[in-house]
């Protein structure tokens, strides 16, 4: 019985959040959403999801904390180094054919993977003719991404990732170390536009040569995934490339036949028609 009541509470909470604040989690994949809502409930020291709803309706700080919990912002520099090696081999030659490049990084969270791709493009002499649109639904994480400040303690792991990703320089060339933190080099972000965009509710806003959206769609249900895939399809130039997360797929979507697979393991697809 308790479980059924919680399912009702999740439905009501997501409706309340949408009506009050405009963030639409109603078509998120329910199992992991419920887990994150429960964790938020614990952090707020509340005993039920209904109590959380009452608090969120009236307290914008609580809503921001909810957003931090529910939109999963787990990321790191050169995460999945194999992707970057595959990217150099299969995507970079396609990008080099283009006189100018527009890239959309959807769901960029605190920006680590945006800086990673910027570094790769810099090393391939492509960054100068590129504009990267890095978007997220959460303004607070975008501000962090824009600052490009990360913990010094993370750099050892990131350096290993960078090397495994086929990096051509010393990773430390790309940041300035301070006390306990590093600041990413400003020239890397010269061509990055940080902007709010919600894949659930917002439309296509440009035509791109490359779209990266990794480990975002796993949080959506099938209907919402279909919407996002339509958005990506509409936003990609013919011959443009879509990069998804390791466990994400074009299979089971209506757009499967519009793409060819450039790298099956790293989930790199090219729009053919």
């Amino acid at each position: 019985m308790a479980i059924e009541i919680e399912d009702i509470e999740v439905l009501l909470l997501t409706e309340a959040v949408y009506q009050r604040w405009g963030y639409d989690f109603r078509d998120y994949a329910p199992t992991s959403l419920k887990r994150r809502i429960r964790r938020c409930d614990e952090l707020e020291k509340l005993l039920s999801i209904s109590s959380l709803q009452e608090k969120i309706l009236r307290d914008s700080d609580c809503m921001q904390r909810f957003l931090d919990q529910v939109s999963v912002n787990v990321t790191s520099m050169f995460r999945d180094p194999g992707l970057y090696r595959a990217f150099r081999a299969t995507v970079v030659p396609l990008l080099k054919e283009q006189p100018s490049l527009r890239i959309w990084h959807a769901g960029c969270a605190s920006g680590e993977e945006v800086y990673s791709i910027a570094i790769l493009l810099h090393e391939e002499d492509l960054l100068g003719r590129t504009r990267i649109y890095a978007t997220d639904l959460d303004q607070a994480v975008l501000e962090r991404a824009k600052e490009g400040i990360y913990g010094l303690g993370l750099m050892k792991g990131y350096t290993e990732n960078y090397q495994a990703a086929g990096g051509k320089a010393a990773f430390s060339e790309y940041y300035h170390a301070g006390h306990g933190h590093v600041v990413m080099r400003k020239d890397l972000s010269k061509n990055i536009v940080w902007a709010r965009h919600n894949l659930v509710t917002d439309a296509s806003f440009n035509e791109f040569n490359l779209i990266l959206c990794r480990n975002v769609l796993i949080y959506f249900n099938a209907r919402l995934q279909e919407r996002a895939h339509r958005l990506f399809y509409q936003s990609l130039a013919e011959g443009g490339v879509l990069v998804l997360g390791r466990q994400e797929t074009m299979r089971l979507t209506p757009h499967e036949s519009h793409y060819r697979t450039l790298d099956g393991r790293e989930k790199i697809f090219q729009r053919m028609i």
Partner: peptide, 20 residues
């Protein structure tokens, strides 16, 4: 379950998460 993701059962299908 592949490495580095949580694997979840959601109705008649699988779901993933990268939660902590």
């Amino acid at each position: 379950a592949p490495p580095n993701y949580h694997l979840l059962i959601e109705g008649d299908h699988f779901a993933y998460s990268m939660d902590e």
